[in-house]
Write a protein that binds this DNA or RNA. Structure first.
Lengths: 241, 241
DNA sequence: TCAAAAGTGTTATGATTACACCCATGA
DNA sequence: TCATGGGTGTAATCATAACACTTTTGA
């Protein structure tokens, strides 16, 4: 599928079944947390009437493809990564959201661990960029609305399930985790209280490793203990701070 | 729009722009709480290959109509009620969810106060029925999945915003409210603790009225105080029990 | 030895839980 | 007077918030 999402060359009803769905698309907020900064990936539109403007990456859905699979395919094409954490936000259906015809879009968000990610896998530097979540610019179409809804959805999710781990490397320090929560939720938390609360949950396991090459006391490294999470998942967690 | 949602007489691409979107629909869980019972509205399909089976009410989206407006229109046609509480759940996009072609559906749920609702406004008795949420039967297509997702969405919503009031009449007793929470969340709560917690929130106002015609001590009637809610809404509520 | 971040301890306050108990009303 | 639901009180326990404090490390 080489066609740009935003270039409609024929009217939707001329498209054949064997191609893609003609009036519905996917748009995706890809979040990352790199060097303590919470960011989203934007792409520059290379074709169509809004050429050069920035928006969220998106694409069409193939006729016999699950919408979740379409989002995963899009993500893999863009980043080269498989098995990314992905969640649907909702459908956006203002009839005027897209100027060239009636197109409903389904918003998704993805959480990637930018450690093993190379933006050039999908794009050259001029076509994609990371921007800080709290410094979002004006985006094409209704993409600011999609971004806001995705962020809100992630904030709610992160408060009741240990979702944030998907943004961190396998091993991380407690203060990295704390910084992550602070930035996603846009709050300040007390270090001591954060430690106590998180450690009490038994979701983290130590393996004796410590930070290396830092010019201060080396912090213990933790990893997320999925097994105890699944045991406790029924009860309903509360990650509020 | 007289066409049944589930009867596709022409292939989607033959439909004209001036009609409806051809590969996307709305399905809606309509919840009510009547005589202490938490229920959903099911309709019997009158046309198409699955004639006679039960499912959620649904319909097409017009070409120049917002999806939320489509859901509202559907709801009004069905119930005769305007300004119903309505929320989108998500899109459902399994390519095999609908046997006659590729149709993605957007799930919504509505909360109605069955006091001022007459099911016959939209349907005759043989075409629609209320079923208890905890006694759900097998439904057509993927409607069980849509129902489960809607219920979960409502459960989450009700825990962090005073949403449940939409299911109650304007004036209600504390124990009716408690019964509602118990049924939506499928939990048991302590009467005394429920009272204390809810009253401390200042979301309820008394107006001196009491129950009438009951064969036990008459309970005070409360109503939801929207103004204090909006003052406090920033802080983020916690309705967990 | 100093800065910088890691990590610990303490206390007041408030929320939650699990009870037992009393009250008002119509049948 | 009794059944039925309405409504109150209390004490133990647990969670949270706001602090001050100590430890380790490389430069």
């Amino acid at each position: 599928m080489k066609k740009s999402k935003y270039l409609i060359s024929k009217s939707p009803s001329e498209l054949k079944k064997s191609e893609v769905m003609d009036s519905i698309t996917i748009d995706c907020c890809i979040f990352s947390f790199e060097k303590g900064e919470f960011k989203v990936l934007l792409v520059q539109h290379g074709e169509g009437i809004r050429k050069g403007e920035w928006g969220l990456p998106g694409g069409w859905i193939e006729y016999d493809e699950h919408i979740d699979d379409a989002a995963n395919r899009l993500l893999e094409n863009l980043t080269g990564l498989k098995d990314i954490y992905l969640e649907q936000v909702k459908a956006f259906g203002d009839p005027n959201r897209f100027p060239l015809g009636r197109v409903i879009t389904i918003g998704y968000y993805a959480l990637i661990n930018s450690e093993n990610f190379d933006i050039k896998a999908g794009f050259t530097a001029s076509e994609a960029k990371w921007v800080k979540v709290n410094e979002m610019q004006n985006l094409i179409y209704d993409h600011n609305e999609i971004f806001e809804a995705s962020l809100k959805h992630l904030q709610e999710k992160v408060k009741r399930a240990p979702t944030g781990f998907n943004l961190l490397p396998d091993k991380f320090t407690l203060l990295q985790l704390m910084e992550l929560y602070q930035q996603i939720l846009d709050i300040e938390v007390d270090k001591s209280n954060f430690r106590r609360k998180f450690l009490k949950m038994k979701l983290l396991k130590e393996n004796g490793d410590k930070q290396e090459g830092v010019s201060h006391r080396a912090a213990k490294l933790y990893s997320f203990d999925e097994s105890t999470y699944h045991q406790l998942t029924k009860k309903g967690f509360n990650f509020e701070f």
